[in-house]
Design a protein around this nucleic acid. Structure first.
Lengths: 145, 145
DNA sequence: CTCAGTGCAAAGGATTTGCATGCCG
DNA sequence: CGGCATGCAAATCCTTTGCACTGAG
């Protein structure tokens, strides 16, 4: 799943905020890239990231500020993290209200166009400066059903 | 803002889960109804709810289980609560990435129709049993701009 | 040699829970 | 009267932070 230049891009963005792209950070990014779905910290630790819990948190903060990863909120107690959209693909989430797990899905381009147009309209009406949108489906995942 | 039968409905739903509609709970529901936007616990306490903090949390859990209120997640540390949609009106949120405040907005019916159709499609493809959807605009609110 | 990155342990802070009391039914 | 709701305070648990050590440049 790792795009050829995923690491190059990440390195560049980290550099832009005076941060290094260490082996541990690389491992973290690869873990997220391979997962294909947002991961909670316990998931990350379980999947053999040889990192102290605190370092995971700290690095995720750094990567978030660098615009490499994004924090996603779910229904359970853990925050989840995924690669920034411009490193993957514009997508939305299926959030399980039972177990809190999150899966990705993509919508048709026509749908996205409609949504974008509508949201521009809303922004105009409310004076709200929208940076991006978020569409989630809340329900019960296949595992919990 | 309080619909004539808001309290009747609330009482009924609480009754359905063997819970009473006490004066404190009524005050909580009215506070949320009047606010017109999701409130965080500190907001609730500030607005003169004569309730202990722990009771607010406890009652919100009860009300959530009864399907009277809904928990909304933002970007800051506090969870926020609003009345369930069927007690108000279907709407979406403008979330400020700067201060974490949340405001409501409604979209055109055509937009909602398109969204619903698209989401039904997605649910069919993924085997995900969607209960409802959530559309948020993330950006900077007028106050923070 | 310097300074960012890391691990470990302790601190922080929103949320939850235990227990005694008071009130509704 | 009995049981649930409430307040207060202590406990939880995810997340953050302090500090000393290590490794890259």
């Amino acid at each position: 799943m790792a795009t050829p230049d995923l690491h190059a891009t990440t390195a560049a963005r980290l550099g832009a905020v005076q941060q290094r792209y260490t082996a541990k950070r690389r491992a973290l990014v690869e873990l997220l890239a391979d997962a294909g779905q947002p991961l909670a910290i316990p998931d990350i630790l379980t999947r053999g990231a040889s990192l102290a819990q605190s370092s995971v948190y700290r690095n995720l903060v750094v990567l978030e500020q660098a615009g490499v990863v994004r924090r996603v909120i779910s229904t359970d107690d853990y925050a989840r993290f995924e690669l920034a959209e411009d490193l993957t693909e514009h997508h939305h989430h299926l959030i399980c209200s039972s177990c809190g797990s999150i899966d990705d899905f993509t919508a048709s381009s026509g749908f996205e166009r409609t949504v974008t147009e509508a949201l521009v309209e809303v922004a105009k009406d409310t004076g709200f400066d929208a940076q991006h949108h978020r569409i989630d489906l809340i329900g019960v995942c296949a595992r919990c059903a």
